[in-house]
Nucleic acid binder design. Structure first.
Lengths: 153, 153
DNA sequence: CTACACCGTGAAGTGGCTTCACGATAGCAG
DNA sequence: CTGCTATCGTGAAGCCACTTCACGGTGTAG
């Protein structure tokens, strides 16, 4: 009955989830940040200046919540709210210099963590891990709403 | 530069974390539960009737928080608070029949999810995944406080 | 010009979490 | 027996993430 092996695998993944969550929360708290705010900031780095609507859709949360998160980030001097040049209803959220600086720092921390976690794995095992995770992700994505499969014309 | 591969692996794990968190939250909400309350109930299944202090230590949260979680579970008729036979300060939290029933149901759901996620992986790849995850967990655990390395005589 | 759809936010509420203070009980020293 | 002290659980107060509902300001199509 290989069912046990699958449950065992899920257990590992669940534990990983818990531990990583703790680690992220703790290390971000050391920088005065929270996971939610950091997620928004992180997304901003890749997407560039965005309206709050766009951020809400990208993060899968309500627009109201984005208002609060941006409030917090703005109070910490990490982002600014600027008027949208073409749409006076919308505001563009942009990282400040300090925000970008902190993002770089977070990126370095992430690389460091990746090194600590996976540095001991030989390349072939690492490749096997990544490809297995990709398989699992592909199976998981359609089961979860709001990940990347929303298209209802 | 194999650093990229490690960051890629961390990205997969992070996405998995997010997706699994969403899935759990959603499917538990369908049963009128929350993740935190369910974690407590789940632990109770393995540990048997416990004092709230013991639960707080086991879950790594404050005792005050356990009070609130037990309040919620008790209101839902899933656990009962009974006086500790030997210590009149403490209360023993015990799952009700309905609580145990629900736990069995959750266990079945978990097995089903494990099957959906890992059912397509051949046994050797599954084994490789599990052992790689074990390696990573072993590296991660000491980095996170409160996981399983607290012993200060 | 008039509808209507959309942007962001105030108001109100839920859940998870924390620290601090406090009463009740246990346990131990004297 | 009598205190001192540690522990158990909980009220009070507060922060963060998140939601829905309502509303004013704005864009846009008819």
């Amino acid at each position: 009955m290989p069912d046990d092996a699958r449950v065992a695998a899920l257990d590992r993944v669940l534990e990983l989830t818990v531990l990583l969550g703790r680690d992220m929360t703790a290390s971000l708290a050391a920088s005065g940040l929270t996971v939610a705010r950091t997620t928004l900031l992180w997304h901003l780095r890749a997407a560039g200046p965005s309206t709050q609507r766009a951020l809400a859709d990208a993060l899968g949360v309500s627009a109201r919540n984005v208002t609060g998160l941006v409030d917090g980030l703005a109070a910490a001097g990490l982002v600014t709210r600027e008027p949208h040049p073409d749409d006076r209803r919308a505001t563009l959220v942009t990282p400040t210099a300090r925000g970008r600086e902190l993002l770089d720092e977070l990126g370095r921390g992430q690389a460091e963590l990746a090194g600590q976690l996976f540095g001991g794995l030989p390349p072939d095992r690492l490749d096997a891990l990544v490809s297995a995770l990709d398989d699992v992700l592909e199976r998981l994505r359609p089961l979860v709403p709001g990940s990347a499969a929303e298209e209802t014309p």
